[in-house]
Amino acid sequence: MKSRLLTSILAGVAGTLAVASVASAAELTVYTAVEAEDLKKYAAKFNEDYPDIKINWVRDSTGIITAKLLAEKNNPKADIVWGLAATSLMLLGEEGMLEAYSPKGVEKLDPKFRDSANPTKWTGMDAWVASVCYNTVEAKKAGLPVPTSWQDLTKPVYKNQVIMPNPNSSGTGFLDVSSWLQLFGEEGGWKYMDGLHENIARYTHSGSKPCKLAAAGEIPIGISFAFRGAKSKAKGAPLEIIVPTEGVGWDMEATAIIKGTKNLDAAKKLADWSITKKANEMYNKGYAVVAYPGVAKPVKHFPPQIATAMIKNDFAWAAKNRKAILAEWQKRYDSKSDPK
């Protein structure tokens, strides 16, 4: 009813404008949340093998790219997603937005790193693992001991010395919360977060910000992810990247074709390439854990034990309960932010 009204009003206005943009088969609109500085490299590597497929990147943070994809659900602009949190892709999958397609060689990937459905709707690239960024200089000033476990962080000594991402806006935040719920059980998990909440100075919108704030000394401890910590450490920040002993939550960057793309063939070629050994070697430049078994080499500043500390993450459970978890989290912690 409403849409018909809109159409009739606008048909006249835009009659001449309504020329659908038809992209040539050799161009792909790729949505991604991969770090800006890596994009050129990724495209160049891909073009070594497929020089006639041009990649037009649409890059933004995980939350925004997910929001964009959802907003465009009825009118998708993306051909393929290359490098977005798997949980986000699962969300899109539930909305029926993903094309079921098993890329060539998908069976070679670690089963953890691919959709269990056949044909697969998404395939993993690399893991993106939670860790704690610990500023040694600031911690020393404040007289803080080095925490070794998640439980350590609930100790009163850390009051107002910890920052973590808001799981409602940050994928990293959500993987932390879902990992604690899996590690400590439903009840224990929430009890843990109640304790942690007492020590949290504030929740940030983005997942990398806690680590960057720790790197800048704005806070001694930032709950973030290892990749970010390694990068900041490389820049000279006095950071220690701590992998809590209980194990760490993780998510992966993954690839999926958007249903209804006009460039399905080219999209399939990119999906195929994205799981090749060559691609995984490329991912390994920044990420210590990648989807292709046997490829990973240690990454500088990355805590070496991290691959073993990764919990057995039940993505399906996390995706299914995402809404309920976030609502509960919001009820418990977001409403406490009244004026002090």
């Binding site: 849409s3 606008l10 048909a11 835009a14 309504a18 009118n75």
Partner: peptide, 11 residues
């Protein structure tokens, strides 16, 4: 408004 699939101005 502009991202409505029926809106020709969506381009």
């Amino acid at each position: 408004f502009f991202n409505h699939p029926d809106n020709p101005l969506g381009i």
